[in-house]
Design a protein around this nucleic acid. Structure first.
Length: 570
RNA sequence: CGGGGUGUGGCUCAGUUUGGCUAGAGCGCCUGGUUUGGGUCCAGGAGGCCGCAGGUUCGAGUCCUGUCACCCCGACCA
């Protein structure tokens, strides 16, 4: 490729709208252009990177017996009605109508399409297990896209769906896939991606993991133990909770005028916040009674956990005027359970001598002991982990980090196969419902993540496995010799074996170097008058780790060595 | 969906507070020269429905109303 012909202007100003490093360099380097909110076009360099990532994805999926297929982007609404998601999913699902007013949708994920295909093709147990995957456009009408390619509405995703006859078989395959994912990130130059436990969300299923690139601009909070291997998304993270030792005291009603926040109560009674109990009230979708969650005063309710327990969407309860609940003064002692549902967080288990609301405006109780003074029997984990809390598995302390989710894997179980009536005939001649797993990786988000992990102040430093070109030839301008001719000769020779981009523009060296940095090509060959007089050229790697003068006759050999070395390092 | 912000040439922005000549700068682009290992310098040139619609006014980029788009923070995120 001749750089003089490459479309995609590179510029030095920081684009106003871009905040993250990857977004800035993707725009400045002429990789992507925004078309609309969360919708981008990709120019040649980005497209080439994308293709290379896809090649890695294909090889790794094929290596775990995946069969590549392709599903439609536009699906009939009725297919999603089978699984119940046509109604269940909110406005992120873009629903459209065709000319006959029939419901269509732009697929945001393809479980339904996968089951639709698999249920008519895999009717015998002898065909199991199998995995089908595709690399396809997805559309999610995100409430808020951001960060360039990090969170967009239209994107390319590798999604895979495996089908099994037993849980054990799914478990086995799940682990194989987890390994393939680690290979993918390693090969793409982001070996630092870690695998964490995660929430399966409304996808359903019990076990799920996310692959996270730890970086400050990440959207998710990751909880990691400073001693052991415990790693988890905040949504599902747990910490060790032990009852705080306090002497039991008799329960006592105390006048607390206008004191209704935990920090005020703690101050008023002169105790730390963990000696209080608080109530959080939610509306439960499809349920008329509000849900009251009791939790220790120093902790927050983790709504994702709570939603999983009640298996419904929660929203904050606000209608105190038409209820018996006294905002700011709700407590578990002598609470009327007729018109509400109640959950007790694990943090309250065994607690004694707490301050809690008295269900009477401007009054609290002190000396409340959960066993002695309430009907609470079951305690469930609904609390948000706090930084510094003890690890659930060891004596370590939990630390928070930020991460970008670059992939996820789910054990879906029978959620889709059952609702969509997929069966196979087992050895015993009986129809059975297969068990499913699904596995996704966003390609664009991977591009952004690779930049986030590999860059310097001048631009991206592409790992050679995904770099748009392997070699960048800079022919500097000269009055005395026609360097472009020399460059062309080297270009044509190298181009037979490598992917080469040749800067034949003859501009000021600063411009050529700056552009080369923005394109981030791993190996750069610089042709300048001074060195050429001695029959030499300079070879430098984008990360500046190798920088040497090479005899003109040895260029091919030398490049071959460096490329091999870079490839081997991944 | 809530809060904040921005729309002026391809990019970054000034001008809007206090309405007033033909709307500016730098970068980029085109032409000529100059320079030649980290965005050289000089001269000339092209390019703007001032987001859109309506209104006030002798006069609107500037004031008013509406509307659209985009960005940031949050909620949400299969």
């Amino acid at each position: 490729m001749l750089l003089s012909k490459l479309l995609g202007e590179r510029f030095k100003e920081k684009p106003q709208e871009a905040k993250s490093i990857s977004h800035i360099f993707l725009l400045r380097g002429g990789y992507i252009r925004q078309v609309s909110n969360g919708i981008f076009s990709m120019l040649l360099p980005a497209q080439k990177i994308k293709t290379k990532i896809e090649k890695i994805l294909r090889e790794e999926m094929d290596s775990i017996q995946g069969q590549e297929v392709i599903f439609p982007v536009v699906l009939p609404g009725e297919l999603w009605q089978e699984s119940g998601r046509f109604e269940a999913v909110g406005s992120e699902l873009l629903r459209i109508k065709d000319r006959t007013n029939k419901d269509l949708l732009l697929a945001m994920t393809h479980e339904e399409a996968a089951v639709h295909l698999a249920r008519s093709e895999a009717k015998s147990y002898t065909q199991y297990p199998f995995m089908i995957y595709q690399i396809q456009t997805k559309f999610r009408d995100e409430a808020r896209s951001r960060g360039g390619l990090i969170r967009v509405r239209e994107f390319t995703m590798k999604d895979a769906y495996s089908f099994h006859t037993t849980e054990e078989d799914l478990d086995k395959y799940y682990n194989k896939c987890l390994e393939a994912y680690n290979n993918i990130y390693k090969r793409a130059g982001i070996p630092e991606v870690i695998c964490v436990e995660s929430d399966s969300g409304m996808m359903g299923g019990k076990v799920a993991h996310e692959f996270m690139l730890l970086t400050d601009i990440g959207e998710d909070t990751i909880v990691v133990c400073d001693k052991c291997e415990y790693k988890s998304n905040m949504e599902v993270a747990t910490g060790k909770l032990e009852a705080i030792k306090k002497d039991e005291e008799p329960i006592k009603k105390v006048h607390t005028p206008n004191i209704n926040t935990i920090s005020d109560i703690a101050k008023y009674f002169g105790v730390p916040e963990e000696h209080t109990l608080k109530a959080a009230v939610y509306n439960v979708e499809g349920e008329s009674k509000p849900l009251v969650i009791f939790i220790r005063g120093d902790l927050q309710v983790n709504i994702a956990k709570a939603q999983k327990i009640v298996k419904a969407v929660l929203s904050p309860f606000e209608d105190y005027e038409n209820s018996d609940l006294k905002f700011g003064f709700i407590g578990p002692y002598k609470l009327d359970l007729e018109k509400i549902n109640v959950l007790y967080d694990k943090s309250l288990e065994g607690e004694t001598n707490l301050i809690c609301g008295a269900n009477d405006t401007d009054y609290h109780y002190s000396g409340f002991s959960i066993i002695r003074d309430s009907v609470a029997k079951d305690f469930v984990d609904i609390s948000e982990v706090k930084e510094g809390q003890s690890c659930p598995n060891c004596e370590g302390k939990l630390k928070f980090k930020r991460g970008i989710e670059v992939g996820n894997i789910f054990k879906l179980g029978k959620k889709y196969t059952e609702s969509m009536n997929m069966t196979y005939i087992d050895q015993d001649g009986k129809a059975k419902v297969p068990i499913m797993g699904c596995y996704g990786i966003g390609v664009g988000r991977m591009i952004a993540s690779i930049i986030e992990a590999n860059n310097d102040q001048y631009g991206p430093i592409w790992p050679i496995s995904v770099a748009p070109w392997q070699i960048h030839i800079c022919a500097l301008k000269s009055k005395n010799i026609n360097i472009n001719d020399v460059g062309k000769e080297i270009y044509e020779k190298l181009n037979k074996k490598f992917e080469v981009i040749f800067d034949d523009r003859g501009l000021a060296p600063g411009i050529q170097f700056a552009d080369a940095d923005l394109l981030g090509i791993p190996v750069r060959i610089i042709l300048g008058e001074k060195n050429l007089k001695n029959n030499q050229v300079e070879i430098i790697t984008r990360d500046k780790k190798i920088k040497k003068l090479v005899d003109l006759n040895d260029v091919y050999k030398e490049v071959e060595l460096i490329v091999k070395m870079l490839e081997d390092s991944l």
